[in-house]
């Protein structure tokens, strides 16, 4: 499969690229040059550049959006919100049916439903991001994707993450959220997302919480395991054991 990765030179991108490279042809884009050698073709590209994103998507079978800019208001809206519009417009232009979008867990849960007080927080609640810049810009991006899926035959899987860890670097007593995954394990879910029969998805816009099995019971990754066949590794358990 020919796969376009937007924001592929960031923190998660290299792990995803290495995971997918053996089975897919990759075109990786980012606003910054990669800090390490990445497999496939690389293009410097701002996800906020509509014409550039549409051009980069030509000949692709799937688009993965890993782009992240959290703090600056202009770039956060440019990348997290308009970047989604550009990605979906590119998918329409080139007839690409498979899109995987990413964001933080509070894209839907906001900071009102939290691991402090609640349990079994799942991905299928009505989005309530609040006004936090990162959460809201990603949530509006998700909504743009959803609107496109209502009008076009495109499926979007939204993978939401929270806390990434390098298992080899975990220190005794290290702080963590009750929603952790290793970088390598996170990358594996993208293989599942590229392999899954799109007709097996419940709808054309589905949200998944991607994290390891954890004993805290705060968030639920049940849907990700049931629908995508996600297999959590047991590589971050030293955080609580």
């Amino acid at each position: 499969m020919n796969v376009l990765i937007l924001g592929g030179a960031g923190m998660l991108g290299p792990y995803v690229a290495r995971e997918l490279a053996p089975a897919h042809n990759l075109r990786i884009t980012d606003i910054n040059p990669p800090k390490e050698d990445l497999p496939g073709e690389f293009l410097l590209l701002d996800a906020a550049d509509l014409d550039g994103v549409v051009a980069a998507a030509e000949g692709m079978d799937a688009i993965l959006n890993l782009s992240v800019l959290r703090r600056h208001r202009q770039t956060a809206w440019d990348v997290s919100t308009r970047g989604c519009y550009n990605m979906m417009q590119a998918a329409v232009t080139h007839g690409i049916r498979r899109v995987i979008n990413t964001g933080p867990h509070y894209t839907v849960a906001g900071r009102h439903i939290t691991e402090i007080h609640d349990f079994d927080i799942g991905p299928d609640i009505p989005p309530q991001p609040g006004t936090n810049l990162y959460a809201l810009t990603k949530c509006i991006g998700l909504e743009i994707c959803r609107v496109f899926t209502q009008h076009h035959d495109i499926s979007v899987q939204h993978y939401l993450f929270y806390n990434f860890k390098d298992p080899a670097a975990i220190q005794p007593g290290e702080r963590y959220a009750p929603y952790v995954i290793s970088w390598e394990n996170a990358a594996e879910v993208f293989t599942l997302g590229l392999d899954i029969d799109l007709d097996a998805l419940p709808s054309r816009s589905e949200v998944f919480y991607v994290f390891a099995d954890m004993p805290h019971g705060k968030f639920s990754n049940e849907k990700t395991k049931r629908i995508l066949g996600f297999k959590p590794r047991q590589d971050v358990e030293s955080l609580w054991k």
Binding site: A48, L50, R73, Q74, W77, D78, T81, R82, Y85, N86, T131, L133, L136, T137, I140
Partner: peptide
């Protein structure tokens, strides 16, 4: 379209904040 999206989202956010 890009400018209209920017005005409707980012500018609305800035105004309301």
């Amino acid at each position: 379209v890009s400018a209209q999206l920017d005005a409707a989202t980012r500018c609305t956010y800035n105004l309301l904040m």
